[in-house]
């Protein structure tokens, strides 16, 4: 059961990155879209993410629940030492979620819309930035459980080059996912080209930020290259991701939406896989060289079993319904296109 729970944890993180990421990305795209096109982007975006918006949000909650039920000491260590970035991320989530809904549901359309939009786009940028910072800090080896100053315990645990570049990388990935997703959501030619363009820019930004992550890893002595190139699986995955990049550019050029989406998803999956595979089961690396391991720092066996059962049972109910939801709205879009 332990492994079932771990697979769910990993899958929840991946799905949050993919679906929630596309969702954040839509706001990032809007941030980098100017003037007249903004309105059109907002429209496409609402059509695309509106129906599943609430559901996307759940992956994060599942991640948290699995952590505190199944791996309580990992959850509490992260909560203590990464308190500040977590709190900022939370503020971002509040601002984003409410601004998005308010913008759509306000009965009167006036200047408030501009305020909601501004809050929405900035928090769409901040939230994934801090998500990335949190993820980066967890593995950076900067969390010092013996620190005795405020700065070293609660600030330098997360504020360093490596985690910030992981944060920027996350932002770029989100923007990229959203652009790729939006291409398929519009039948207007100019809009399509605009999204293709955006996808390309975001992809390049992701590659640059990715490079930055390596540089920062080197500077902050995070053995990232070792994790990725230290074993065959890592090399294969990273090669697959890089090669598919070429294919992706080609498809982008051709504007083939469906394969493009799958490919973009595949790339992000590979990235997450390579970065987590090598140091599994350690998900938090501490300053003193210690680890918090999913295998050693787990909760009671009985709890893990029940948690696994709850997750499996939940999936039986949820997945068919979720697919049906996505399917019905996909079908609707297609029938309109035809």
């Amino acid at each position: 059961m332990l492994y079932v729970v771990i697979v769910y944890l990993w899958a929840a993180i991946l799905l949050y990155l993919l679906l929630g990421g596309a969702d954040f990305g839509a706001g990032i795209i809007e941030l980098f879209t100017s003037g007249a096109n903004k309105k059109r982007t907002q429209k496409t975006m609402y059509k695309a993410i509106g129906p599943v918006w609430e559901a996307n949000h759940m992956w994060l909650i599942i991640t948290i629940v699995i952590l505190f039920v199944g791996f309580p000491s990992i959850y509490s260590t992260m909560s203590v030492y990464l308190h500040i970035p977590l709190a900022i991320m939370l503020l971002g989530i509040i601002a984003r979620g409410t601004a998005f809904t308010f913008r759509h549901y306000d009965a009167v359309v006036d200047d408030m819309q501009v305020v909601y939009s501004r809050i929405f786009v900035y928090s769409s940028f901040i939230t994934p930035l801090f998500l990335g910072i949190i993820a980066g800090s967890a593995v950076s080896g900067q969390i010092d459980t013996h620190a005795n100053t405020f700065l070293s315990a609660f600030i330098f645990s997360w504020l360093h080059l490596f985690s910030v570049s992981v944060g920027l990388f996350t932002v770029a990935i989100c923007g990229f996912l959203a652009a790729v997703y939006l291409i398929g959501e519009t039948d207007n030619k100019t809009d399509r080209n605009r999204y293709i363009n955006k996808a390309l820019i975001m992809n390049i930004a992701a590659v640059i930020c990715g490079g930055l992550v390596f540089v920062a890893a080197y500077a902050d002595e995070v053995p990232l290259t070792d994790w990725i190139f230290g074993n065959a699986a890592g090399i294969t995955a990273i090669c697959a991701a890089t090669l598919s990049l070429l294919l992706l550019w080609y498809l982008l050029y051709k504007g083939k939406t469906r394969i493009l989406r799958i490919l973009a998803g595949f790339q992000v999956t590979m990235i997450l896989l390579t970065t987590t595979f090598r140091h599994f089961p350690n998900i938090v690396i501490l300053k003193n060289g210690g680890y918090l391991s999913l295998l050693e720092h787990r909760g009671y066996d009985k709890t893990i079993n029940m948690l696994g059962m709850a997750l499996l049972l939940g999936s039986i109910f949820i997945l068919p319904a979720l697919f049906y939801l996505i399917y019905s709205f996909q079908k609707k879009v297609e029938s309109k296109e035809a």
Binding site: E54, A55, H57, M58, I61, I62, V65, I66, F68, V69, G70, P72, S73, Y75, S76, S79, G299, Y300, T303, M306, L307, A310, L311, L313, G314, F317, I318, A321, L322, L325
Partner: peptide, 24 residues
């Protein structure tokens, strides 16, 4: 949470399912 999480977490894990169904 470190001590209570794994003990009283059962309702929270089920609640996840309930919320999900609600959102869908």
């Amino acid at each position: 949470m470190k001590h209570a999480g794994p003990i009283f977490g059962m309702p929270f894990s089920l609640e996840g399912t309930a919320f999900f169904i609600e959102a869908i």
